[in-house]
Design a protein around this nucleic acid. Structure first.
Lengths: 241, 241
DNA sequence: GATTCAGTCAAACGTCTGTTTGAATTTTAC
DNA sequence: GTAAAATTCAAACAGACGTTTGACTGAATC
């Protein structure tokens, strides 16, 4: 008591920095990286245009800072949760459900915390996955390399009968459904249209997604031979007109 | 023999129009809508800058024309194929496999036809799904409204035990995984890295995706009660730190 | 009290954007 | 062969873009 109160960081300068990050987060989410101008951001943040370059260096650096602020803690939380689950269940391998839970719970916690970006940030993240800009793709690859490797290894132990190739593809599909779901403007419309009266909408969303993904992960191996199985037959017999 | 040869449309004017569409398709795919300038497009197409506005009206109209050129025939083919399958199997309802096949086969045919855009166009389409620009979202909604309604009805007959709400969500997830897979720069890298030596890469890709999606569609209903089932328990018990 | 230094500010930098114009050219029609 | 219509072209439009500059502020340091 009576000690000095440090609001967040240095008392004044980073109030500007924070306002820039908040405004940039909201605008990048709404319009994407290219379609958002620094003037829109600095106007929304009530900040001088040059402040962006003073505090962050460039527009690209600002974008990375916006992502890092939320993404870094969330991913560390994911890794910690996965590790905790693994210790709790050792020596048995984790179930797919538990592994997915380790991916989803930190995302859910972030989604329902409006102070820290909330669902808007998850939408921004989903958008970033589909952005063609090379610097964004490189940034996300670097940020996620460790996390993805850890989770892929965990899924590999949970699905030992699944070849590594197949697992890589299925994780790719999982990321796709997840990103699309998080990013969707449509998802927001769907939430409004479909689940009126339900309390925790984001939680409901991901709890619908989880069984879908788990079933997909556990699906029987695809039939890659020429004419075998209903799906493969359907593909091949109709190939020519 | 001896008859008049009509190259594509009117002999010259639409040579320009076609070159613009081709160049725009390639560049929009590579950099997205906002990050691609008309000057890049007209330079690549060896065409005067003003030709874009003369033939298409605006940059947005050009983008829609690029999409429509391939999307419209593909969607009509999808509907025709679905109808054919339904007649072949009548009065039994179609299986999920058949319905998915009706979605995938026209996409596959387009993907392996380099003359008509090939896989580049599918990537462009996947990107468009994730684009925040309102005019793109409206355009895609309008283009797909009929197709999605038809396929949703078909899936509803194939999965009669699934509530409509749930089906809407799962189709959303299906579209997500599909778009992400089609759009991915990563998908191309994955193809290169994982499936060396395989012939029809796109076909392999979609034939891996199909079983994943079918299993997800057929998954048991999610447990939306408070504490029930492994996944739900995992979500809720770990909610606070 | 002078000096330093992080931060803010208005103004301008050069470049690029989508779009428009009006004359020059080519193609079509009679 | 000539009139009309369709297309191409170079040039310019006004405005927005990310970035840089240099003067100005206020509090911290010695």
């Amino acid at each position: 008591m009576g000690g000095k109160v440090i609001p967040f960081e240095t008392p004044k300068s980073s109030a500007t920095q924070g306002r820039i990050l908040d405004a940039a987060e909201a605008l990048f989410m709404e319009h994407g990286f290219e379609a958002t101008s620094l003037r829109q951001i600095t106007t929304a943040a009530n900040v001088n245009l040059a402040a962006v370059h003073y505090h962050f260096g460039s527009k690209e650096d600002l974008f990375e800072a916006v992502l890092t602020r939320r993404l870094d803690p969330m991913n560390q939380e994911r890794l910690a949760l996965l590790t905790r689950f693994e210790h709790e269940w050792a020596p048995k391998p984790l179930s797919c459900e538990k592994i997915l839970a380790a991916m989803f719970i930190p995302a859910l916690k972030l989604a329902r915390d409006p102070e820290r970006g909330g669902k808007n940030f998850l939408r921004l993240l989903g958008r970033a996955y589909a952005d063609p800009a090379p610097f964004i793709r490189h940034f996300l690859s670097d940020q996620y390399a460790v996390v993805i490797a850890r989770f892929k290894a965990a899924f590999g132990r949970a699905l030992p009968q699944l070849p590594k190739k197949e697992l890589s593809w299925r994780l790719h599909f999982v990321m796709g459904a997840l990103s699309f779901t998080l990013a969707g403007t449509d998802a927001l419309k769907l939430i409004a249209a479909l689940s009126r009266g339900e309390t925790a909408n984001d939680e409901m969303l991901l709890r619908r997604l989880a069984p879908f993904l788990i079933a997909g992960l556990k699906a029987p191996l695809p039939d890659l031979s020429e004419l075998d199985g209903e799906a493969a037959a359907a593909f091949l017999t109709q190939q020519e007109r």
